[in-house]
Nucleic acid binder design. Structure first.
Length: 499
RNA sequence: GUCCCCAUCGUCCAGAGGCCUAGGACGUGGCCCUUUCAAGGCCAAAACACGGGUUCGAAUCCCGUUGGGGACGCCA
């Protein structure tokens, strides 16, 4: 089995395309097949090097590795259509010589006008065939005279083109609805339907799995395969990915490209796992399944036929799952850029700085959807001001109610003589002393402590947060992490502020 | 307009004639847990588009209607 993913480098990789790439990858990995990456840069106007590079980078990030294609090479290369021009040329001259294709001299403006008229008259807009009857010798003469010409395929009339779609079953088209398609544009570049057939055919692709929007291209391509004397591969068309309003997912729906999801702090394994759940299911009541396991279970015949709506909330849920499972060292490194942007990291991380970040993972990894929310969740670590906390009327009121002041005073006192609270036990010990001294317990004890130590009424668990504060306060100057004010200093400042 | 595809909770999937009083997940609501916000646990509300067939029996098969989507380019 040889499958391929053939994006055109005209923008960022869209999640809909990623889903298609994933299905191809799953198929290849599950059946010991070959996954080919081919860059379809036939449109010189719109293709860019940047997009080309971005697509490769996105696929690397996702971990969808290819067996043949750019960077890795392969026997069927080259793997960019811009490098295969001579192949297309020789194939098109075969077609021209066999009378299966002809030169077309129609001006684009004229064709455009004709199409509008057809549409306005409720007729299928298809090429009139005006140039189909020009004598080949005459055409050659006009060509050599310098007249610009495209090459069109002579579509056989009055027959059906039938194929067995791997996901949908038999699909049938009548050739009357298919006009004579452009094979080569007047600028010499191949048109998509031609390039794709030549490439898939010559690369020995056995299964073409692509989006539903290509269904109507399939009979056109099958006709070209026949003209070229090549055996068509099997085709499978997967349904579209839609936005919440049930139209094709696009930028106006928010984030749609891989780089945007990476930027927001989704893990690649989460994005892929979520995408696999669109139009497919790994099995009885299971949704969170590792990729390798999915590959074992994946089958095109199990893929659904109807379009699905992309739901970022569910993606977030999948992401939370993988955030809990991820290695802390990896997460620490992944969230560093976000912390840096927030100003919580101000230089290269030393070993102790990196270790500190790693120790912070349990503080946020069960309570955050994405990595870009980490700085917000950790802000109490790096931002503390008793004075500005007390500007908040709610905080002020809480501090002045009941025995809060006594608790805070006792806390400041207990902390003054205590060493840094490097773990949960140490913090509990101090809390116990405050409890003995004030007779407060439960919320009446812990809420004032939380306020005095964090400046806020809510936030991460104190058992985790307080030791994190004091470990941060112990960090040396060159750690790369912004200085953290210790618990002792925080309690003192708060006690003084409310005197 | 023409051609093609599709149709189960708000959303994603399960269901391949009796196992369906339609199952799971996200989200939503409630309860529990809890020193806060989360997380976690439990419970609940929530769907077979409609109309005809076929059959002893249909969410499942057939036809039609309606609705949605896609394609119709010298874009891919």
């Amino acid at each position: 089995m040889r499958v391929r993913f053939a994006p055109s480098p005209t923008g960022h990789l869209h999640v809909g395309n990623v889903r298609t790439a994933l299905f191809n990858w799953l198929l290849a990995r599950g059946q010991n097949g070959t996954f080919i990456l081919r860059i379809e840069d036939t449109d010189v106007e719109r293709s860019t090097q940047d997009s080309d590079a971005a697509i490769l980078e996105d696929l690397h990030w996702l971990g969808l590795d290819w067996d043949e294609g750019p960077e890795v090479g392969g026997a069927a290369g080259p793997y960019r259509s811009s490098e295969r021009l001579s192949t297309y040329q020789s194939r098109v001259s075969d077609l021209l010589e066999g009378g299966l294709a002809y030169y077309c001299f129609c001006a684009p403006e004229q064709l455009e006008a004709e199409r509008k008229v057809a549409l306005a008259n409720n007729l299928p807009p298809k090429y009139s065939g005006r140039c189909a009857r020009i004598d080949p010798a005459e055409a050659k003469r006009r060509m050599t005279a310098g007249e610009p010409a495209a090459v069109r395929f002579r579509t056989p009339q009055n027959r059906d083109v039938v194929f067995q779609d791997l996901v949908r079953g038999e699909i049938r088209f009548h050739t009357d609805v298919i006009g004579d398609q452009i094979l080569v544009r007047s600028d010499g570049h191949p048109a998509y339907n031609f390039a794709v057939v030549v490439d898939d055919g010559l690369m020995g692709v056995t299964h073409v799995v692509r989006g539903e929007d290509h269904i109507s291209n399939t009979p056109r391509q099958i006709l070209i395969y026949e003209g070229l004397g090549l055996t068509p591969p099997a085709f499978g068309h997967v349904a579209m990915v839609l936005g919440p309003d049930h139209t094709k997912l696009s930028k106006r729906h928010g984030a749609v490209s891989v780089d945007e999801f990476r930027e927001k702090g989704y893990l690649p394994e989460a994005l892929l796992n979520y995408l696999a759940l669109l139009s497919w299911s790994p099995g009885k009541d299971q949704e969170l399944v590792p990729l390798v396991e999915m590959a074992k279970r994946f089958s095109l015949s199990d893929v659904g036929h109807s379009a699905s709506v992309f739901d970022e909330e569910k993606l977030a849920w999948v992401n939370r799952h993988y955030l809990k499972e991820a290695d802390p060292k990896r997460l620490a490194m992944l969230c560093a850029p976000y912390l840096e942007r927030a100003g919580y990291i101000n230089g290269p991380l030393s070993a102790s700085g990196a270790a500190y970040l790693g120790s912070l993972v349990p503080v946020f990894n069960t309570s955050v959807d994405r990595l870009d929310q980490v700085p917000q969740r950790l802000r109490q670590l790096f931002e503390f001001s008793a004075a500005s906390a007390l500007d908040d009327p709610g905080i002020r009121a809480e501090v002045e109610a009941g025995a809060a002041r006594q608790v805070i005073d006792a806390l400041a006192e207990a902390l003054a003589s205590a060493p840094r609270l490097s773990d949960k036990q140490a913090f509990r010990g101090v809390a116990d002393r405050v409890k003995q001294k004030t007779g407060q317990k439960g919320r009446a004890l812990f809420h004032p402590i939380r306020i005095a130590l964090t400046g806020a009424g809510d936030g991460p668990e104190l058992d985790l947060l307080v030791p994190a504060i004091d470990r941060g306060a112990d960090l040396d100057a060159g750690s790369g992490v912004v200085p953290v004010i210790g618990a002792r200093e925080r309690a003192r400042a708060f006690a003084d502020e409310i005197k």
